[in-house]
Design a protein around this nucleic acid. Sequence first.
DNA 1: GGGTATCGTTGGTGCCCCCAACGATACCAT
DNA 2: ATGGTATCGTTGGGGGCACCAACGATACCC
Lengths: 141, 141
Amino acid sequence: MTALQRVAGRPTWLLSRANARSQALLADAFSSEGLRGYHFRLLAALDQYGPSSQAELGRGTGIDRSDVVAALNDLVERGLARREPDPVDGRRNIVTITRRGLSTLERLDGAVDDVQAAVLAPLTPTERTTFVRLLAKLGRP
Amino acid sequence: MTALQRVAGRPTWLLSRANARSQALLADAFSSEGLRGYHFRLLAALDQYGPSSQAELGRGTGIDRSDVVAALNDLVERGLARREPDPVDGRRNIVTITRRGLSTLERLDGAVDDVQAAVLAPLTPTERTTFVRLLAKLGRP
DNA sequence: GGGTATCGTTGGTGCCCCCAACGATACCAT
DNA sequence: ATGGTATCGTTGGGGGCACCAACGATACCC
């Protein structure tokens, strides 16, 4: 049975296949800590921006406010982040990464690095540079 | 607010962004016929392979058998495909694309072509060739 | 014939993304 | 000061793609 001619070679299909592989490897890496992509992004944002409101986290990570709530519930439950009411703004919470969250983030960081290497493994070093450069031009229409 | 350093520039992230854009454009194209990616793949398989069993369609498209059932229900309901019991094998159905299905597929074909162009638009012609060549090396580890 | 494999189907899960609405609170202009 | 507007956290819902387990029914092979 031949491959689907209308689909197989098209850029959009290749993109979805490559991304599927990439996402599978990432999911593996995150699941080693019992987490998912949203959690990693939130921890990264908390580390980079410092204590933030949930709305800020949503904007900083591109995750919808409502999904931030759920993912944050997990992080707090696991002791990777703290959530406190903002004393000067009754609408906001102040979310802070904990020591455990920080060390988890650092472990994931290494794993995520490994995934980058694994994803690009089929390419030569030169090709990798070229590929990433071109790829970067695509996401932002 | 700066971009997420731990995420923004990484190949896996660029890949997911580019793919998200690609999938959004595809979804737009398919929704013009009230369909989704699964429907297009199934119609393409029915056209290319001729009348097939659902299991064959699943293998030919990479769609899980259970998901084939659901998507096929839609296609049959819309008159784009026919589903009949196989007279020589009581386990199987024989699925056939209809005339309407064929013309829908041809319309979608053009729309999907346009999407390819739109996705690659940020690249020069030379870059497009290079990009697709490298991309093709990634999906198959 | 009896064990094994395949088929269609049902039902469920997970991840990512998106949207609408709500009460509560803050902000700003009059 | 007060009223209108905007933001915040939260709840609840949906969609698309992908995957898995189980089932009864049927076919196949030794």
